[in-house]
């Protein structure tokens, strides 16, 4: 009886030591979770999630304050990637935060723009160029399609234009076997 108890005790002690040692030896440095979440987010910086940008949303998710289904630009795929990373169940997208749309870029109607700079101040990635009382323009390659510039414009000269499929960005489709028509 005593021997059994002693064996158990020694075993428990030894296992405890091993666990304690490995906790120190294999410690994960820092808190990379926010960074990992941020890496999945599309960096549109649109704020549709209810946070001022992707990083704040990532922080909120990491802190358990926000759900993973609040990012429309990331869409279903982004939500799934987050669920995978965090080890939680995927859930339907929360439509309160908007619906997923095809990627668009902002285009400024140059003839209407009055050069008020409001859109420049709104752009989260400095993708709009221009000066006061001078017409502004959007750098298409750097526009994330966040739509934040659309609302501030006093003359409604900014429209979101969906990206067209072209030879340059065209992708091969998932194969579907089409039955050839016999003439």
């Amino acid at each position: 009886m005593l021997a059994a108890v002693l064996v158990m005790l020694v075993l428990a002690l030894m296992l405890g030591l091993v666990l304690g040692y490995s906790a120190i030896r294999f410690k994960v440095e820092g808190d990379p979770l926010v960074g990992k979440i941020d890496a999945i987010l599309p960096q549109t910086q649109c704020g549709q999630c209810g946070y001022p940008g992707c990083k704040p949303y990532a922080t909120a998710i990491a802190n358990g304050e926000a759900d993973i289904n609040q990012c429309p630009p990331g869409g279903e795929a982004g939500m799934r990637a987050l669920a995978d990373l965090l080890g939680v169940e995927p859930r339907p997208m929360n439509e309160e935060h908007g619906v997923s749309k095809p990627k668009s870029v902002a285009v400024i109607d140059e003839n209407v723009c009055i050069g008020c700079t409001l859109c420049i101040q709104a752009c989260p990635v400095d993708a709009i160029l221009g000066a006061a009382k001078h017409m502004h323009t959007v750098i298409a390659s750097e526009c994330t399609g966040c739509e934040l510039c659309v609302a501030p414009c006093p003359v409604d000269c900014i429209v979101m234009v969906p990206l067209q499929e072209s030879v340059a960005n065209w992708k091969w489709r998932y194969p579907v076997h089409t039955i050839k028509q016999v003439a």
């Binding site: 990083k55 989260p124 990635v125 750097e142 994330t144 065209w170 091969w172």
Partner: peptide, 28 residues
Amino acid sequence: YRFAKSEIIAQDKAKEAANLARERNEFR
């Protein structure tokens, strides 16, 4: 394979664009 390749290339491009956007946002 063609589908998977072009999908990977597109994802890499999107990732690159996202990194650029992040950088520019942080700079701003």
